[in-house]
Design a protein around this nucleic acid. Structure first.
Length: 532
RNA sequence: GGAUCCGUAGCUCAGUUGGCAGAGCAGCUGGCUUUUAACCAGCGAGUCGCAGGUUCGAUUCCUGCCGGAUUCACCA
């Protein structure tokens, strides 16, 4: 078991039993209350001692015990609703023997309700003078240290409940996250979009360059993939005449973890018919600058010792302009034309020591140069446009130069935050692009995109000229809440399973595996399977 | 997957140039009827991540493993 008895847990179990023996119910079914603690604080924080005496406000309020200060026959209990704290004052001669006994059996972390009237103490602290306590639930596990909180990151991520109890600023981050997503919905709902949901499980993992998670449908006996992007489904809806759609949901990519990557992450994708990528530049500025202003109250946001300035208009460079701009100062920069020539590009890549096969196509080489030279500089919001066609199998090519597509990515705080383009709607050209991708797959690139026949069939019904965009919500939340790690904006970030859990799963699995010799061996087997 | 760092009481952290393991909070006992990091007196609490090795002796040194953080790779 994960919950191991120690001195403190045993003591709390004993206290719980004594509470039950006194005739209180162990875990109550509900608690009718007049206020939450934050409501009390909001309503009465500015009332004076005299005002409270005159008003004599009777309240009934639940919360979690954070501290107990006992002075012989009277005591203060500080308790909290997670956001605000309030203190309860009780006297043994007022509550009676039984309730005083209950009080003495309370532990930090227990949930209780207090009934009484509001007053201010000698030191002017707003408090409930309580004559009736109700016991709501026992904390068998002691809460983290009341001053230093919970620091251990592993426990914070694995046991987010404990993190939320101990660290109030963590709660603030996730409240902000919720607010951000609400504001995004509000923006699209008020701009004629409808919110849709498309499959998370699909027979094809396509619409992005990434490796998928694989699963199996028993009844149909087929392989299914957790989606890597909703893109192709959303554009099917544009074909069907839903001219403006958006979806906020999870994507799953089977790749390494990092400070900026979680295997499941939340993506906003939206598509707008009869528009092109330039329309989305304006929309993106308006959406994100509006969000920043609402959530942060300013357009200048502090992030990792830098200031990010969201004042519009944002910088906009083509990929080749950006590469030339950030070319190492001691070297002669190439010309724009040189930056699409595969022979020159492979020479440049070698000279700069960029880690990519020099035999890659011109688009990939340019992309690698960009990542190497430019990305680390893009702190303020910057749109990068004019992507190589080879990197963009779903984008419409540029009228001026078919080697490039009408696409942009938005970078903020050195992170890719958004990706948008004019959608390729020519089914013949789309098939051609897919086939090129499939060729790359055949040559061992298992992230090249998979051909989707039904998507081509959908395009053959005619899709309007359309612009579409994806925005990484987790990264956006990181920037707006000042968090450096994506794990601090995801409630339950992906972690390796705890060893104790692994052992549990193994014993459940072992019924299907033939006579497993010892648990050490079967553990290794399951770890290997997970790794593949 | 590679590199670096980390894992000591419920929590936050000291510490041991290899010799019986320490503090604050939390817990227990007692005192205290307006405290607020309450206070005062006393007490208990540990597989020093796990498994081996070296050693008279390992929490400390070495190796492997588990878990975490950071970073590189992967991942636009």
């Amino acid at each position: 078991m994960i919950l191991e008895d120690n001195e403190q847990i045993l003591q709390r179990k004993k206290n719980l039993q004594e509470i039950i023996d006194l005739g209180f119910s162990a875990y109550t079914h509900s608690y009718k209350h007049t206020h939450t603690i934050r409501e009390i604080v909001n309503l009465y924080a500015d009332k004076t001692k005299e005002e409270l005496e005159t008003l004599h406000i009777e309240v009934r309020v639940p919360g979690r015990i954070r501290a107990i200060r006992k002075m012989g026959k009277a005591a203060f209990i500080t308790y909290s609703d997670g956001q605000e704290t309030l203190q309860i004052y009780i006297r043994s001669n007022e509550v009676g023997e039984k309730l005083w006994k209950l009080f003495e059996l309370l532990d930090l972390g227990d949930l209780i309700g207090a009934t009484g009237f509001l007053f201010r103490t000698k030191t002017n602290e707003l408090s409930i003078h309580s004559k009736d306590l109700e016991f709501l639930a026992k904390a068998l596990t002691p809460p983290p240290d009341k001053h230093s909180g919970l620091q251990n990151k592993e426990i914070r991520y694995r046991q987010r409940y404990a993190d939320l109890i101990a660290n109030r600023d963590v709660r603030e981050v996730f409240i902000k996250r919720s607010q951000i997503i609400r504001e995004i919905r509000e923006y699209f709902d008020s701009h004629g979009y409808i919110e849709v949901e498309t499959p998370m499980l699909s027979p094809l993992a396509t619409g992005a360059a990434a490796r998928p998670f694989v699963t199996h449908h028993n009844a149909l006996d087929i392989t299914l993939y957790a989606r890597i992007a909703p893109e192709l489904y959303l554009k099917r809806l544009i074909v069907g005449g839903l001219d403006r759609v958006y979806e906020i949901n999870r994507n799953f990519r089977n790749e390494g973890l990092s400070i900026k990557h979680n295997p499941e992450f939340t993506m906003l994708e939206f598509y707008q018919a009869y528009s092109d990528y330039k329309d989305l530049i304006k929309l993106t500025e308006e959406l994100i600058a509006g969000l920043v202003e609402k959530v942060c109250g300013t357009l200048e946001v502090e992030y990792e010792e830098n200031k990010i300035n969201f004042a519009r208009p944002w910088a906009c460079l083509t990929m080749r302009e950006a590469v030339i701009k950030y070319w190492p100062e001691n070297l002669t920069p190439p010309t724009k034309e040189e930056l699409i020539d595969p022979i020159i590009l492979s020479r440049l890549v070698k000279e700069l020591g960029v880690d990519i096969a020099p035999s890659a196509n011109a688009g990939k080489l340019l992309g690698a140069l960009f990542e190497h030279l430019v990305e680390p500089h893009l702190n303020n919001p910057t749109f990068i446009t004019e992507f190589p066609t080879e990197l963009s199998p779903l984008s419409k090519e540029s009228k001026e130069d078919p080697r490039f597509v009408d696409r942009f990515e938005l970078f903020i705080a050195k992170m890719e935050l958004a990706n948008a383009f004019s959608e390729l709607n020519d089914p013949v050209e789309q098939r051609h692009r897919f086939e090129e991708q499939m060729q790359q797959r055949a040559h061992g690139d298992d992230e090249a995109m998979v051909l989707d026949e039904d998507y081509i069939r959908a395009l053959s019904y005619a899709m309007p000229p359309t612009a579409g965009e994806g925005i990484g919500i987790d990264r956006l939340v990181m920037i707006l809440t000042g968090q450096r790690s994506i794990r601090d904006v995801i409630l339950f970030p992906h972690m390796r399973p705890e060893r104790k859990n692994l052992e549990q799963e193994d014993s459940e699995d072992s019924e299907s595996s033939e006579g497993s010799e010892n648990s050490e061996d079967s553990k290794k087997t399951s770890e290997n399977q997970n790794a593949e």
